[in-house]
């Protein structure tokens, strides 16, 4: 089973991103790393100047590099950004149908923000060249099994760690929370490297705002599901970067996959790395996403 480090959903400073990916290249036991901005075109208005260097370093370290593209594409600049990505020679992850249309005929990856909910949509995008599909968070593990059977040549990538994207929008809630408009947002999303915590009026933490996206408050932590997923025909799993020691976390997953670590022990160690944030796995079990089914972690 291969491990992918998904695209960084949160907005980190340039220095921090550089340090993060340098360490990932040197130390993280992952097979594939996604680079590129998914959430907001304003975060890197002229593209990320470090991308060529970072991708080269990751490739030298033996990692496959995939360029992720924007999930919400509307303005001409956003369209140009997607089209440009498709022509850079890297494997591209489509997070909007526009990207699929632009890259159709060449190999590509479908990200979790494209609505591929069933085997018919899956085989359709596969006919257009998709070699790997990370289905949306709502697709249960039973659904992933249907996917794996329907398209045996496509790698179905299950997300097994991190916050889940729950909504995509044109409006920026990070800016709105500061009384700003998106057009003049001052990139306030950079102040919350793991997302802006959002609670109910009764004080219950519920979601995290990440610019124009809303993410789950709970982290997916599917360590116990790795072996069952492998039995369903899942050959790849994805970790979504959070503001945590992702190298240690990737190592826990690698060791669990390789049978060096018992899943329960791995989960207990994960708890030590993630603080008090609750874990969720409801969607995987066709339940409400925020549910945690299993031993308390």
């Amino acid at each position: 089973m291969k491990i992918t480090l998904g695209p960084l959903m949160h907005h980190w400073s340039r220095e921090r991103r550089r340090d993060f990916y340098a360490r990932i290249a040197d130390e993280a036991p992952v097979d594939c790393v996604h680079l590129g901005e998914v959430v907001c075109s304003k975060r890197a208005p002229f593209g990320d100047p470090d991308l060529p260097a970072l991708s080269a370093r990751l490739q030298e370290a033996g990692k496959e590099v995939v360029f992720s593209t924007l999930a919400f594409v509307s303005s001409q600049r956003e369209i140009d950004d997607v089209l440009h990505r498709c022509d850079e020679g890297f494997l591209v992850e489509a997070n909007d149908v526009s990207c699929i249309n632009a890259i159709a005929g060449r190999p590509y990856v479908v990200g979790p923000m494209v609505n591929v909910f069933n085997e018919d949509s899956l085989t359709y995008v596969a006919r257009l060249g998709a070699i790997r599909v990370a289905p949306p968070p709502e697709v249960s593990h039973a659904g992933l099994a249907v996917f794996a059977r329907a398209a045996p040549l496509v790698d179905i990538e299950a997300t097994v760690f991190g916050r889940q994207t729950l909504s995509v929008a044109a409006r920026c809630y990070h800016a709105r929370s500061r009384g700003l408009h998106r057009d003049n947002c001052q990139i306030v999303c950079e102040q919350d490297p793991d997302g802006l915590p959002v609670s109910t009026l009764d004080g219950q933490p519920i979601v995290a705002v990440n610019g124009t996206q809303t993410m789950s408050h709970g982290y997916v932590a599917a360590l116990a599901d790795l072996a069952p997923l492998a039995r369903l025909g899942i050959r790849r799993v994805r970790l979504s970067p959070q503001d945590l020691d992702m190298i240690a976390i990737a190592t826990l997953y690698r060791d669990t996959i390789d049978g060096r670590l018992d899943p329960a022990e791995a989960l207990a160690r994960l708890r030590g790395l993630t603080g008090a944030v609750p874990y969720v796995n409801g969607y995987a079990r066709a339940r409400e996403g925020m549910a945690w089914v299993g031993e308390p972690a």
Partner: peptide, 19 residues
Amino acid sequence: TMTEGRCILSSYMTGRSPS
């Protein structure tokens, strides 16, 4: 306010999906 067809906040809380 969310892009239609791309919001699952409700299923995160209830298990039943808008999609």
